[in-house]
Structure formats: structure tokens, C-alpha cells
């Protein structure tokens, strides 16, 4: 699986993502600096977590206006899987590649802890190795993870099964509407995810429930 990791000056979970992709796929992903204007062919594009431009304005708002996003959008439209985790999720919503928006956590505080997630749609490029309604453990670490969408949008994404992950068993850490933790675009090849599966793939992490997400993508790339 050839994967690309997009690097903004304030990305900081890029290293975690690179390590996870290498461990699971056996191949080092190619790192793409945000000022690049073209992307090489790839099986997966990842926008990792962090604070792309410090997030002093709305998280991801500045990164969403960088040139590389136009190129990411072009690849996404052609069906290339795009995964945005935490700040990546924020950037993809700001860029209009995903519906809804991410507001400040309801607690108004940064939160880092383990939560439980329910697989709401196991029939996607990203979740094929999970089973439907399966409950998994996964850590979160964010300040602006409170997912919100207007009633119309919400109805559309729910009707179209665009919710991939939901916080389960009262572990919603941020006040997200409908407990939404991960959402897909209409074509279901772009996923935005607030939790960090890349930090939950080895026994040393305290659990490996995050692996199946990467393994699902791997299987799609190398059927």
C-alpha cells in the first residue's frame, strides 16, 4: 500500500501516523510538505493530527486554504481514499470535503483519554475489518472535537450511512451531536475521525483496536 502523509508546519501526530502506517503496511509512507502542488499516485492520503497553524483561529481553517488541499480534493474526487484524523478531520471539514464542523469541546477543555466507539458502518474502505455495531476502545486527544451539523445535513448523513464511528456507552468526550466520532463523505472514500487509531495498534499502547482500520485500507489496496 502506497500512502502519503501530508505535513503542515504544526502537524504533530504525523510521526505517530507514519509509524503506524509503516508498522501495519510494511512500507514507509511518503511525506508531502504542505507547499507541494501535486501529489504522486497513492492508495491512501492521510491528513494527520496536530495544530496545523497553531489553531489560534478556527482549527484547520488556515490549512484548509493551502494549495495542497486543492490537489487532495482532486484525488478524492477520483476515488482515492483520504483519511483525516483529529486536526486532519478539522481541515477536511473546513475544506468542504466532509460535511459538518468541529466546535470546541463542550467542556471547553482539551481532553485526552480512552473512549469506546461503535462501528456504525462496517461496510466501508476504512471499516471493512470491523463488524457492524462492534464496540472498540480508542484514545482521543483534542480540544475541538465537538461535531456539529445542521438538522438537514445531519439527516442526510444519517440517511446515507455516512457515520462510520460513534462514541458508545456514554463515553462521548466532547458533546458531538448524535455521538458522531467519525464521518464519511457522500462517496464514502473520505473519512474524518476525531479519535486516534494510530495510537492504539500495539500491545504496548494498551490495546490494538485501532489496527483494523489500517488493515481494512491495506486489504482494499492489496486485495
Amino acid at each position: 500500500m502506497k500512502s502519503l502523509v501530508i505535513q503542515f508546519p504544526g502537524s504533530n501526530r504525523d510521526r505517530d501516523m507514519i509509524a503506524a502506517l509503516e508498522l501495519i503496511s510494511g512500507h514507509k509512507p511518503q511525506v508531502i510538505w504542505h507547499q507541494e502542488t501535486t501529489l504522486p499516485p497513492a492508495d491512501l492520503i492521510v491528513v494527520p493530527g496536530g495544530f496545523s497553524y497553531g489553531d489560534y483561529l478556527r482549527s484547520g481553517a488556515i490549512a484548509a486554504r493551502s494549495a495542497i488541499l486543492i490537489e487532495i480534493a482532486r484525488h478524492a474526487a477520483r476515488g482515492v481514499p483520504v483519511l483525516g484524523v483529529r486536526n486532519g478531520f478539522q481541515i477536511l471539514t473546513e475544506a468542504g470535503l466532509l460535511p459538518g464542523t468541529l466546535m470546541r469541546n463542550a467542556s471547553l477543555k482539551f481532553v485526552c483519554k480512552n473512549v469506546q466507539l461503535e462501528i456504525s458502518n462496517a461496510d466501508t474502505l476504512f471499516t471493512g475489518k470491523y463488524s457492524s455495531n462492534q464496540i472498540i476502545n480508542c484514545p482521543v486527544a483534542h480540544h475541538d472535537g465537538n461535531y456539529f451539523a445542521s438538522p438537514d445535513t445531519l439527516k442526510t448523513i444519517e440517511d446515507n450511512a455516512q457515520v462510520a464511528f460513534r462514541y458508545a456507552n456514554d463515553t462521548n468526550p466532547n458533546g458531538s451531536i448524535n455521538n458522531i466520532a467519525g464521518v464519511l463523505n457522500k462517496q464514502k472514500n473520505v473519512l474524518g475521525l476525531m479519535p486516534h487509531p494510530e495510537n492504539f495498534i500495539e500491545p504496548a499502547h494498551g490495546g490494538t483496536d485501532g489496527r483494523a482500520l489500517f488493515e481494512s485500507l491495506l486489504e482494499m489496496a492489496n486485495p
Binding site: 505517530d16 483519554k113 494510530e198 495510537n199
Partner: peptide
Amino acid sequence: WEQYDTLIQG
């Protein structure tokens, strides 16, 4: 400590 990122760097 739940307000600190304790997990980054993996």
C-alpha cells in the same frame, strides 16, 4: 492530566 496529551508520539 486528562487535559494533557499523554499519548502523543505513541
